[in-house]
Design a protein around this nucleic acid. Structure first.
Lengths: 353, 353
DNA sequence: TTGAAAGCGGTACCAG
DNA sequence: CTGGTACCGCTTTCAA
């Protein structure tokens, strides 16, 4: 076979079957095939098959005004936990014969805007946005006026007293406040009284809410001291977690935390590194909790205690909302809040005496 | 702003600027903008901006016969090592103003065919295929006759005597044979004499070639015994690695391996689990080597010795080839073979006495 | 049941 | 430098 085999058009199929293109179009479209006589239908379909015809999705979409594609914007493809979210999106999309177009932003606001423009240019039917920064609120509200947009994972609500007026109508979030609170309460129950958090970027709602959860849990325990540093992680990475933890461990012993709540698993892993490097032992000297329950964190040494986030389900729900809205179907519950699960493993233990 | 804001067309921009659509088209296209007078150009551009115009990529692609999109087919999105490959693809695509369309197959041949059909329907300019099975060779050859296709990661050459006649002209592979050979030679040098491999699926060239590398290395050491079981892993997962290793450790001691070469990191992790469950210690009792150098395997207990595969570079090269071919640019080297690097960590040690 | 023709939103060729 | 126009490939009224 030779490269450059020109692509077969509907015209050619029609000609080969001896019918008009309109008829060929009907015969090949399951929705309309019943409008065509049995005989012509099979004739057209046979011709199509033998010529290797494949509908030009661009032409069809251009004509129909919808593409059957779903834009998905994530911050970090290399985050295994994001992969699960993408899986959920993909499953749901497939069930609706839609195709996800995936774009990565790496926490760059400019990249987010480029991604959106690009997806709009490609006329996606809807967008799932899983990499929003708080400062993107106005921009995203604008976009969601132009097509159905679902926020996933990160949103714009960080208030303490209930949901604010929604800039974006549809979202699938996880209860970060609660997840953090549960985690810290567990540490308190283990007897820890000097606890620090490794906080993620201020621009990201998940981290703001986890911060609040941390603070609220600490407030319930009179004897407990928050010994966090004020510094935030510049990025969610092992090395940042290590750096921040190192700072905490340099302090005189009575100022050192006996437990660390990291805003995500990667930073928690960095914490484990720092603890080991400092000649200390986790959890005997310092306990560590992460967030996300990323793949493989159960195989670390020690296996990481963390908060599980239902990422697959989140992807599914977000895609479901997006596609329903795109199809003009009514949305029963446009704002979904999923519950986190605390997963206790061996990186947490009783406070040292 | 109200939802449903109808999308602005070039016609409206032209009208608003008081010019013909053709002129507006030129003014807005960087390649042709120089054909338009300074004045009209700015007038059109202003109009476009103020109306919020955005080129309809579908219409443009339909007319131009190319879409500026690159199909990427991978087996497993949740594999962190694949994320790096995707990053490489994305970087290169962005540099060429192209957009990757990512599809996952999960090792399902039917899914591969669906993915290809879908991408062809979307008229991608080229395809990077990173999830080929050996049995897909004919199908893939057919496809690559229709548009530029680059094999990445997995190919169809598993022969022992040099490259076979190429079914697909372009590919970016990694020297699996060499990677495996180096790993096993290291084990032999450590004094191991009973060595087993945990073999991946027969349908995947990488595994076939790693198998060959294993065999060739063993053949160089007269006293060494291959104590592998004949069974292959059904999938590349921790649980499969664990199951297969468990089988090996059930044997009487003199039939048990003192070192295990796993065809990938996930199976190696399963091996570590099984060893621990059996009450043995890695590497004192059994050494373990993986493949891929996936993120975080340096944080396992013990940190995993493995073979690093330059996945980012692989993605870049594959995308570069694909886009060059799509653009009709000459391809200097259509078949690239990247070198693996052996990464020694602490899951390997001297053979027990 | 089938054919004719318009048009989705651009681009590119040809005239002027 | 700008306008006119055909057309990319398909879907969808409207008529016959």
């Amino acid at each position: 076979m030779v490269t450059g085999a020109r692509t077969v058009t509907l015209r050619e199929v029609a000609a080969s079957a001896g019918v008009h293109v309109a008829t060929a179009s009907r015969a090949l479209n399951p929705e309309q095939a019943h409008l065509v006589s049995e005989r012509t239908r099979t004739r057209v379909q046979t011709a199509a098959r033998s010529l290797g015809y494949r509908t030009n999705a661009l032409a069809r979409s251009l004509r129909q005004g919808r593409t059957g594609s779903l834009g998905v914007i994530v911050a970090d493809l290399a985050n295994p936990f994001i992969a699960n979210l993408l899986r959920g999106v993909e499953e749901e999309a497939r069930a609706h014969a839609a195709m996800p177009l995936i774009v990565e932003t790496r926490e760059d606001p400019a990249a987010l805007r480029r991604a959106v423009q690009r997806l709009l240019g490609n006329r996606v039917d809807a967008i799932v946005l899983a990499s929003a920064h708080l400062a993107d609120a106005d921009y995203v509200a604008d976009v969601s006026a132009q097509l159905p947009l679902v926020l996933a994972l990160r949103g714009f609500d960080v208030g303490e007293d209930g949901p604010e007026p929604a800039a974006v109508e549809m979202q699938v979030m996880q209860d970060d406040h609660r997840g953090a609170k549960v985690a810290v309460e567990h540490l308190l129950r283990l007897g820890h009284r000097r606890i620090a958090q490794l906080a993620g970027a201020e621009q990201i709602s998940s981290f703001v809410n986890r911060r609040r959860g941390f603070a609220d849990a600490m407030a319930t325990a009179p004897g407990a001291r928050d010994v966090s540093s004020e510094e935030r992680a510049n990025e969610s990475s092992v090395s940042e977690g290590k750096r921040l933890t190192w700072r905490l461990l340099e302090r005189p012993e009575e100022e050192r935390p006996t437990a660390i709540f990291a805003h995500n698993d990667l930073m928690a892993i960095g914490a484990l590194d720092a603890i080991r490097d400092a000649g200390l032992v986790c959890p005997a000297d310092v306990s560590v909790v992460g967030y996300n329950d990323s793949p493989l964190v159960d195989h670390l040494s020690p296996p990481l205690t963390t908060v599980r986030l239902p990422s697959r389900e989140m992807g599914r729900s977000a895609a479901r909302l997006a596609l329903a809205a795109a199809a003009g179907r009514p949305i029963a519950a446009p704002r979904i809040l999923l519950e986190p699960t605390y997963i206790e493993r061996r990186s947490t233990g009783p406070a040292p005496a």
